[in-house]
Design a protein around this nucleic acid. Structure first.
Lengths: 209, 209
DNA sequence: TAAGTAATTTACCGGATGGTAAATTCGGCG
DNA sequence: CGCCGAATTTACCATCCGGTAAATTACTTA
């Protein structure tokens, strides 16, 4: 082996394993920086590989994103689905859902932001697929938020929309905080959320001036 | 006037007016797409002018961002400051603050996201200045959230941090919803928030399994 | 009407990024 | 050993973006 002039050639990593490595790195990068902000070079560097390889394995940047999205979406959708259960909203449903999400996300928390990326090229397949997943999850949540509003007598459909929107973003916020506090376990997070909920309750029974 | 071969030359728009036009367009673009996502060409096109002119008027992209940030930050900080008032947190403080923010934002709602842009080049002046404004506002909010937690007996500093974080992002979420519903007046928004708060209260008095 | 200044564009440059075609090396198998 | 296919890189290209120097036109005033 006389000083290889080129570093090309296989490194002995089997195809499937590389696939997984790339997928993992890409999910982190997309989650942390968004589709637009993530760079293929950065993902490649993280794996210790060249940009070109990503293309050979997954095609377009958008294709790679979709490849990351699908498992994450499936996992989260399943988690929320079974946390809601067959029966309607009960008082502890929100916390159950949160706990399910935290658990599903442990070991790859940024994955949440792959699903809720706002920088996807509009009109593309990535945006479509992500929107589908979000819609499925939102549909589950919609039942819960609607129950809430009905209980307080509001029938305004915009109220329902806003509440759905707020709930969804609240989860994103909590996950974002969680990402910045890696030592917190999923259970610890759920308990913290329970405390925050009760704290927030103390400011509720007051209307506008 | 024999068919001008070049479109260069003044269009008769006085300097100060152009400045304002550019500032307005840039604020919208930065607010809608973030610093990283916004392009100088797009801003220039919106004004009907060339990229180069932006540089001549404001310098660097980051300089332009700062020029947009300062008035927005000042306006919002002032609004929150006087909505909180000299006396501590009262039950209706949150809604008062929200109303102040909505009012300050009317006529340029995306401006909020200039202040809370997450895509600023780290280490730069823009990030520093924005962080300063956010810190000032957060400091005001911190008093309020701390009061909430004390009332419920929690002394965990992480709880306080998380609550501050959640409150801040909740405002962002509400503004984002508002941006998508342009017909809603600031007052209508505040009233909607009041309803949402009471609705959210119905899910509070429940701890984890 | 000619000079001078203010406003604005044209024509570039360098760097980063997504993407592609072709070459190169390594591992296993006859 | 020699061949073949799998894994991976090298070397490019086009595009977009932020940024700069120099030219060009319109407005104003003497």
């Amino acid at each position: 082996m006389a000083t290889p002039r080129s570093k090309a050639g296989t490194k002995g990593v089997p195809r499937e394993q590389r696939r997984q490595q790339i997928l993992a790195a890409a999910t982190e990068e997309f989650g942390a920086n968004g589709f637009a902000g993530a760079s293929l070079a950065a993902i490649a560097a993280r794996v210790g590989v060249t940009k070109t390889l990503l293309h050979q394995y997954f095609g377009t940047k958008e294709d790679l994103y979709v490849a990351c999205l699908v498992p994450v979406g499936d996992r989260l959708l399943a988690a929320v689905e079974d946390a809601m259960g067959p029966d309607g909203t009960t008082p502890d449903t929100p916390l159950r859902v949160l706990h399910a999400i935290f658990t599903a996300l442990e070991g790859g928390r940024e994955a949440w932001f792959v699903l809720y990326d706002t920088s996807l090229p509009p009109g593309g397949e990535a945006a479509r697929r992500a929107a589908q997943y979000r819609a499925s999850i939102d549909r589950l949540a919609a039942g819960g938020t609607a129950d809430l509003l009905r209980a307080t007598g509001s029938t305004d459909p915009l109220d329902a929309d806003a509440l759905k929107y707020v709930w969804r973003d609240l989860v994103s916020t909590l996950v974002r905080w969680w990402v910045k506090h890696p030592e917190q376990s999923p259970t610890a997070m759920t308990q913290r959320c329970a405390r925050l909920f009760t704290a927030a309750a103390t400011l509720t029974p007051h209307l506008q001036p």
